[in-house]
Nucleic acid binder design. Structure first.
Lengths: 234, 234
DNA sequence: CTGCCTGAGTGACATAAGTTACTGCTCTAC
DNA sequence: GTAGAGCAGTAACTTATGTCACTCAGGCAG
């Protein structure tokens, strides 16, 4: 029990939302949080449900997404430990605008709406922090809209590959090498499309000599060539 | 001068963001605002510019939008008097994520970032209000993403028509009648597409007997029929 | 009255996107 | 080892989307 509380307090301290709180404050807050465990694939909550508290990720990755009637998915965000989920419904009182599921086994610190709101009133600077976090979220959403509205799947895929190459790639003699972080299916969800198109477009990029693809293993042979693909008038 | 200040104070009072402030408070705030006038079509600000204050609409309509390299536009929001624009960049300090232009001649109350932030620190409840407003904005963005990702232009158009019919339509013997609020071009921007597709889809709906179209004049003959079009598996 | 400008309707076309339906590969469980 | 599950590659096809290039009507300025 004590152990758990301590863990939660440190986990909370890592949360961007709650940085610059004193250890004592964290402890008080931790005493009011509930630890929740989710296994990979499990739903944290579904779109449309009422929101009764703030989720902070202590362990694991969480995917925020919308689902269409026909079963297609569009990922809105992937959140990692230290980030919070669904800050907004906590404040505006509305239902969740999207669903959330654990990508990996995950541990979540849950603070009830009432407690967190009370906390914000006592600590106005927390509300400003929340605004900052929400600002970043809003910017990402606008970015997604821009992509959906103006770019092809090919370009979105290229953009994703470039980001991965620059973040996770190892530079080798032949180029920049990395693994796709998930299945083609999951990547497709993040790009707002279907598995087949990811596969096809990867093959097409390979045929054009920009990449070598071996299932999830990617070798970028011409990063600048890839980047130049993003600047076409589309 | 006094007149102007008074006007601004009442205009501010109508703003959702600042409701439940006392007249005295409004007056103080109004003393710190600048009145800006824009004529139809004029840009308030452009995507990427630094944000140095909060805009509140006193008169006129304002369009928030993204532009692609090839010149296409995607409207993110249309804001009317009483609403605020770009609350978020004020808080997170980043640049504007999108551009804003006046649809009609517009009058804007402008409060500098510094002043408004100071105001929020003194009045924590205002920060919570801002969170609520931003929450609504975020929900709308998620809605746009859902539409772009899962629906066809036909369905988006139908949804827009239904909304207009229910909000502005006059019921006549032959059906619900209303005018499109803008040119096909503008409607296309709001749906994230081009003029031709709006025109074509309207004609197609007419051919199917759901509507009568005469340029901007619309007569909805079968509202339920329209609605049922939205429930297909797409 | 005439010519011009803007907005609207349309046909032809190229391409992107999504669906269906396979094949084949690689694990894991039995 | 074998069966089955899950992931990946692909071909054929349908539809949606966007572009180009017009035509046409109405309104406004000269």
């Amino acid at each position: 029990m004590t152990h758990e509380r301590t863990d939660l307090a440190t986990a909370l301290g890592r949360a961007a939302l709650l940085s610059n709180l004193t250890p004592a404050e964290l402890k008080t807050l931790a005493a009011r949080t509930v630890r929740k465990l989710f296994s990979a694939g499990e739903l944290l909550f579904s779109e449309g449900e009422p929101c009764n508290g703030l989720h902070i990720i202590a362990q694991g990755k969480v995917r925020i997404f919308k689902t269409s009637m026909s079963g297609r998915e569009q990922v809105l965000a992937v959140n990692v430990p230290g980030e919070s989920i669904a800050e907004l419904p906590v404040f505006d009182g509305g239902p969740f605008p999207a669903s959330a599921a654990a990508i990996e086994d995950a541990e979540i610190a849950f603070i009830s709406r009432r407690d967190f709101q009370a906390y914000c009133v006592e600590h106005p600077e927390v509300a400003l922090k929340v605004l900052q976090v929400v600002g970043g979220r809003l910017r990402r959403l606008v970015g997604i809209i821009e992509e959906l509205s103006f770019t092809t799947i090919r370009q979105r895929l290229i953009a994703a590959l470039i980001k991965l190459a620059e973040k996770e790639g190892r530079t080798t003699a032949r180029g920049i090498e990395f693994q796709l972080p998930a299945t083609h299916q999951e990547l497709a969800h993040q790009l707002g499309t279907v598995r087949e198109l990811v596969s096809r477009n990867l093959m097409r990029l390979q045929a054009e000599g920009l990449l070598d693809v071996d299932a999830r293993q990617i070798l970028v042979k011409d990063l600048d060539g890839l980047k130049s693909q993003l600047e076409t008038t589309s």
